[in-house]
Design a protein around this nucleic acid. Structure first.
Lengths: 123, 123
DNA sequence: AGATGAACATAGTGTTCATTT
DNA sequence: AAATGAACACTATGTTCATCT
């Protein structure tokens, strides 16, 4: 059912993106492609360019987990167009914070793994 | 042809293992399954349990890159059995060190990516 | 053209199987 | 049984396509 965060090696891109999307939905009002644009820009210097289907799949995962839901709304700006914005469900914030806690441990584990590799192979 | 180290997100397990295998071949005299045992043990606490086919594929990659070659030798110990040990080719050490330099940058990039995620989502 | 999403293709890795010693 | 490796299967992700505004 619910996807894996990792398989013991490093965190999966999907989980990584879900973490960011939760934080972005908490703090910004953006629809799918704009979320991708923001993330692309954010990671540009680190060479990571998330693709739009991954963003959508991550958002759909968060919906399946009952954390967010989507609402079609008029695009903010000049042209009339309906786009999909995301909002937390009633229990969404709580679930999100549980997920984030999980991810925090996972990120720490991954950082340790990589730092260990630097230590073991270069010093 | 030669495999990718990453796709812009995190380093691939294969590349990660190749780095370790180079270092192990530099410093120890072990055949395939023993290399896996050692790595399994090394990463046990971090929840990473590399599987034997991945180890073999990583070793085969290093051979295709002309860094190492294999030599069947009698297993060190009591029972007579031929196992496969790995040695650096003539240009192997140089190539290995070039590969390691590459991987060092990749590891650093990945660490930054993960540390950024911690910063962006938890502080 | 921009936005959403599905469909399809590929790649990376894991599980199982075959062979030999 | 231990060791090596191939074959096969599955999952994660990327590329392309379809639809709608």
């Amino acid at each position: 059912m619910s996807e894996q965060i990792s398989s013991g090696f490093l965190i999966k891109q999907r989980a990584f993106l879900k973490l960011y999307l939760i934080t972005l939905i908490e703090n910004k009002y953006l629809y799918g492609l704009k979320l991708r644009d923001l993330l692309k820009d954010e990671f540009k210097e680190l060479g990571f360019q998330p693709k739009h289907p991954e963003i959508y799949k991550a958002l759909h995962d968060l919906m399946e987990q009952g954390i967010i839901y989507q609402r079609k709304e008029k695009k903010q700006g000049t042209v009339y167009q309906e786009v999909v914005y995301y909002h937390f469900t009633d229990e969404g914030r709580e679930k999100a914070s549980a997920y984030k806690k999980l991810l925090k441990h996972e990120l720490d584990r991954c950082i340790h793994l990589l730092q260990k590799a630097v230590k073991d192979n270069f010093y």
